[in-house]
Design a protein around this nucleic acid. Structure first.
Length: 262
DNA sequence: CGTCCAGGTCTAC
DNA sequence: GGTAGACCTGGACGC
């Protein structure tokens, strides 16, 4: 890393550790999912410790990033998100003056403060600029509390969470399912122009209906979205590593083997 | 150079 | 409730 600074004190160190645990979802209990997967020859491999989706620090970040994946190539997503971070994100001490490295994801306040020209001319977000600005202004103005969506399922059931997400500007079925995955809510499949053909290819078909995909993973109940995602991304994992020890590793290199998305 | 479309959504029928 | 058309952008592709 080129980002340097004074070593953290005890309190700051604990904050950093807590942040890392949160983002890497290290303390999530997936035993219920593994119990279902172990009987599925095509997914039993996940029980060696797969399934922790890397997530952002805030729900706001997840929604913004997800909006930047809609109806565009992945390269465009990278461009938009990088521009937001580089130009609107707070810079860490010692971070480079330019570029997205060493910067936090921008706050809603920072994004609300950027004008339409920024979204059009710098982020080049196209029609998504309006969605991003509307969202940021609502959150910054206190009219919308996105962070409250990161709640326990008993308090906020998946169906209600879904309804609230699709009510957001620019968020439809795909984006809502994607954000839910990032929030540890796996009851909905992320169906889009990448996952559909990828699934079809893996099962050796030209095309597959959404209904057929739903059927394949229906046995996973509230974990079906996670099962689908891992089915699609198996090839992203290295062959060997046993990840089971990760939640309890006191230190070291646990994160290197973890695969997820974001 | 024009068309198509990529990790979709919204609006208007 | 289901379905065309429009929507920003910029690579990929055909001509």
């Amino acid at each position: 890393m080129s980002v340097i600074g004074p070593p953290p004190g005890r309190e700051e160190g604990e904050e950093i550790l807590a942040g890392v645990k949160y983002v890497l979802r290290l303390d999530e209990d997936l035993s219920g999912f593994y119990a279902l997967a172990v009987g599925d020859p095509e997914l039993s491999w996940v029980t060696r410790g797969a399934g922790r989706m890397v997530r952002g620090s805030t729900v706001f970040e997840e929604v913004v990033k997800t909006l930047c994946t809609t109806n565009c190539a992945w390269s465009a997503t990278i461009r938009m998100v990088s521009a937001l971070v580089e130009h609107l994100g707070e810079k860490a001490p010692g971070a480079p003056e330019t570029g997205p490295l060493g910067r936090a994801f921008p706050t809603a306040h920072a994004m609300a403060g950027a004008g339409e020209e920024f979204y059009r001319d710098v982020a080049r977000a196209g029609y998504r600029g309006r969605y991003l600005l509307t969202l940021a202004r609502s959150v910054a103005g206190g009219d919308l509390d996105l962070e409250s969506l990161d709640a326990d399922p008993e308090e906020l059931p998946d169906d209600e969470l879904y309804r609230r997400l699709v009510a957001l500007p620019g968020v439809g079925p795909y984006a809502a399912a994607h954000v839910m995955m990032m929030l540890g809510r796996y009851s909905r499949l992320v169906l889009d122009s990448w996952t559909r053909p990828t699934y079809a290819r893996l099962v050796g078909r030209d095309e597959v209906t959404d209904q057929e995909i739903e059927g394949r993973f229906s046995g996973y109940g509230s974990y079906k979205g996670l099962a689908f995602w891992l089915y699609l991304t198996r090839g992203w994992l290295p062959e060997k590593p046993d990840l089971r020890a990760i939640p309890y590793l006191p230190s070291g290199t646990a994160a290197e083997g973890v695969q997820g998305s974001s």
